[in-house]
């Protein structure tokens, strides 16, 4: 069941002896010879809940997709759980952006969640009763069991995101990649989702999330990557989430960063709120496309 308790930073430390969850060497990705990721190096240990942060156009989604082999790199090498993606595909769960699918598609909530096991059962075979029971279990975990037979177009944005999360849970993966799971969802859903992500992490799994909201980074995540075409820094949130590094990543938006620092010093929490809202390029501070 869904818990809405306040999210606490758990003390569980990443396992530094296990193979790296993600190892990226010199990754360059280009669209029509225009590089969107330059020479990215990244090591993510197993068992962390990591945020990929960066301004618009920083290549966050591109990085996520090239980790999953959805975009071929121009150069560089990616390994997931110590192996090429194709080999560990069944151990990887992927939650695309909510807006990437057609929610008018004629299908039910349960059916969408059941798609989570398609990769495991492979070609030709159909999902069976056990798979649907498992799908119901995943729906229950995100608090959506009463919506199983609903047509998916009748869901709110937050409910859609929960369905996507349930689908990923059903994959029972060792590493999860999520693209903006908090985009345009209500506060309750955001709490519910982050609580589940914490549970996954506490089970020793790795969760990598493209994230927008700098205000919640320290509360939600224990690991972070600052990205702006290049990888500016990655590591424990405490080491990476500093004014200097943020300034490097977010470039000209200095006033915001300064507010952020003041905020961190406890001087003026409200200033952060207000200046954040004044930043037009920020995609989704509040409502998003909901």
């Amino acid at each position: 069941m869904m818990t809405e308790a306040t999210v606490q930073q758990t003390a569980s430390k990443p396992d530094l002896n296990a193979p790296l969850a993600v190892e990226v060497n010199d990754l360059t990705v280009a669209y029509r010879s225009k590089p969107v990721l330059w020479d990215v190096d990244l090591n993510v240990p197993t068992g962390v809940l990591m945020a990929i942060l960066g301004p618009n156009g920083a290549g966050k989604t591109t990085l996520l997709k090239s980790l999953l082999g959805l975009i071929p790199p121009a150069a560089g090498k990616v390994q997931i759980l110590g192996q090429p993606y194709a080999k560990v595909q069944k151990r990887v769960g992927y939650v695309p952006q909510r807006g990437s699918v057609d929610w008018d598609f004629p299908t039910t909530v349960l059916d969408v969640v059941t798609m989570g096991v398609y990769g495991k059962i492979g070609w030709f075979k159909r999902p069976g009763k056990a798979d649907r029971t498992a799908a119901m279990g995943a729906l229950a975990r995100v608090g959506m069991e009463n919506f199983a037979t609903r047509q998916i177009s009748q869901l709110s944005g937050g409910q859609q995101q929960r369905v996507f999360l349930a689908r990923a849970l059903l994959q029972d993966a060792d590493i999860y990649f999520m693209d903006e799971p908090f985009q345009g969802v209500d506060a309750t859903t955001e709490r519910a989702i982050i609580a589940i992500l914490q549970e996954i992490k506490d089970a020793g799994k790795t969760v990598i999330v493209v994230h927008h909201d700098l205000q919640t980074v320290e509360e939600y995540f224990d690991w972070a990557l600052l990205l702006n075409v290049r990888a500016i820094a990655s590591g424990p949130v405490g080491e990476v989430f500093t004014g200097e590094l943020l300034r490097q990543s977010y470039g000209g938006k200095i006033s915001f960063i300064e507010d952020m620092q003041r905020y961190r010093l406890g001087e003026d929490a409200a200033a952060l709120q207000s200046s954040a809202r004044d930043l037009p390029p920020w995609e989704s501070w509040g409502g998003g496309e909901g």
């Binding site: 082999g69 595909q89 992927y94 695309p96 699918v101 798609m115 689908r167």
Partner: peptide, 16 residues
């Protein structure tokens, strides 16, 4: 099943 998932969510289908 393959047609359904690749029509509804091509990225998931590809990742799978």
């Amino acid at each position: 099943k393959e047609l359904k998932v690749s029509t509804f969510d091509p990225e998931l289908a590809e990742a799978q």
